[in-house]
Simulated assay, not measured.
Amino acid sequence: MSQNTIQSNVNKNTKVIKQIARRLGFDFCGISKATFLEEEAPKLEQWLNQKMHGTMHYMDNHFDKRLDPRKLVDGAKSVVSLIYNYFPNEDISQTSGFKIAKYAYGKDYHFVIKDKLRTFLSDIRETIGEVNGRAFVDSAPVMERVWAKRSGIGWIGKNSLLLNRNMGSFFFLAELVLDIDLISDGPIKDFCGSCSKCMDACPTDAIPEPYIVDASKCISYFTIELKEAIPEDFKGSFENWVFGCDICQDVCPWNRFSRPHHEDAFVPHEALKRLDKKEWTEMTREVFNEIFRKSAVKRTKYEGFKRNISFVSKNERAK
């Protein structure tokens, strides 16, 4: 096969993949070369050594796989990074008794997006031919924000989240790691400038310096990942967040460009919009299971959710 034919196939396959991404509702699709993340290795090692991952011991695992997607997919050549919007029509935190992160309003994104990625892989194989690849959505040792940055669909902000000039940061990231050559998109510049609003707004000082998040101090970590008692040192600082936290996103100037999603699966349960603090506090297991039946909130389980509400309520009264 001539070099011209090979390049023509690469161009055609790249175009096909971006067309499929649009058809499946992904807002942005970027591509980067599957290679070892040399620059990230010392950063990740230092972050882990400083215990900024708290009790998330799974972060210690698969260090080599986190840095090299070729260890996840044999013969991997390309990483396809995707953005899927979840910004809601209504900010429930403004009307409900307590606050949960916007990404958890509707059906668990792992299921919604994983289904789309299965279809994506199937469509690739139907259109291009036999392609070996795997789909990931926040459930494997993949440094998704780094790959997204490399693919040019955004830059990593000072709060460590990916930012996109057209839609801010209220979106999910997903990846396809494929064993075919594709045209890579180059990274874009960092548009955070001198802004430090995310750092200044964090009530637990979880962003000690730009681009570094101490997860062990993050409200999301305390309300989701931590399985033991929440340290009393942080009493009075949760600002009514009982599952996750959007503070560093809500204050980000780039999120003025956020637009409501069009995904029916992300629409919240009607009851969630109407709960007052008394109803949150007295929520039974049955009500919890009904309202959050398909939600990511179930990750914290009923006992963890009640612990979070109790911690916030108790320390709010103590203030």
Rank of each mutant, 00 (worst) to 15 (best):
Y58H: 15
K197C: 11
K189C: 09
H62R: 15
Y221L: 11
G30V: 00
D181V: 11
D233C: 05
F266A: 10
G97C: 03
F111I: 14
S32R: 00
N255W: 06
F257L: 07
G304C: 04
I100Y: 01
K189D: 14
T284C: 05
C198P: 01
V213P: 06
C218F: 08
A265C: 07
R274N: 12
K18E: 01
I124E: 08
T5V: 15
S184D: 14
D190H: 09
K149L: 12
S237M: 03
D138G: 13
W254P: 00
S237T: 08
I291A: 01
I180F: 10
S237Y: 01
V251D: 00
L67N: 10
M167G: 13
I207R: 03
T223W: 05
L163E: 07
E130N: 15
N240M: 02
E316M: 00
V267H: 03
F36M: 12
H62P: 07
T204I: 07
R134C: 08
P268L: 05
V267Q: 04
I230T: 02
D246H: 02
G97W: 00
K189Q: 12
T300Y: 04
K114F: 11
W254L: 09
L275H: 00
F36I: 12
K158R: 12
D108E: 12
G186I: 10
E239Q: 05
E45R: 11
I156P: 07
T119E: 13
F63R: 15
T300L: 05
I31T: 02
S313N: 04
P69I: 07
D91L: 13
G186D: 13
S93C: 08
Q46C: 06
A201I: 06
A318F: 01
S78N: 04
G193C: 10
T204R: 06
A174Y: 08
I128F: 06
M56N: 13
S8N: 15
F191I: 09
N89K: 12
N85D: 13
F288W: 00
Q3P: 12
D27R: 11
F171P: 08
N61D: 15
L272I: 00
K65Q: 14
F257T: 07
R299W: 10
H269S: 05
V80W: 04
D190S: 11
E40C: 12
H53A: 10
R293F: 10
K294V: 04
V137K: 09
F311V: 00
I219Y: 06
V142Y: 13
K314A: 02
G168H: 04
I83Q: 11
D138N: 13
F111E: 14
V131P: 09
Q3Y: 14
V16D: 05
K102R: 15
M143N: 14
R134S: 09
L24H: 03
E39F: 09
C198I: 03
L163K: 12
K18P: 01
V213F: 10
E279C: 04
L121C: 11
V10W: 03
L226M: 14
E175L: 09
L121H: 07
K15V: 00
T14R: 02
R125T: 08
P88K: 07
S160H: 14
N4V: 15
D250F: 02
I124L: 08
D64G: 05
N289T: 03
D276Y: 01
L44K: 12
G106K: 02
R134V: 07
P208L: 05
N315D: 02
E130D: 15
G129P: 10
E228T: 15
K12D: 12
H262W: 13
G236C: 02
A41W: 08
T284F: 04
F36P: 08
S295D: 04
N89T: 11
G106T: 06
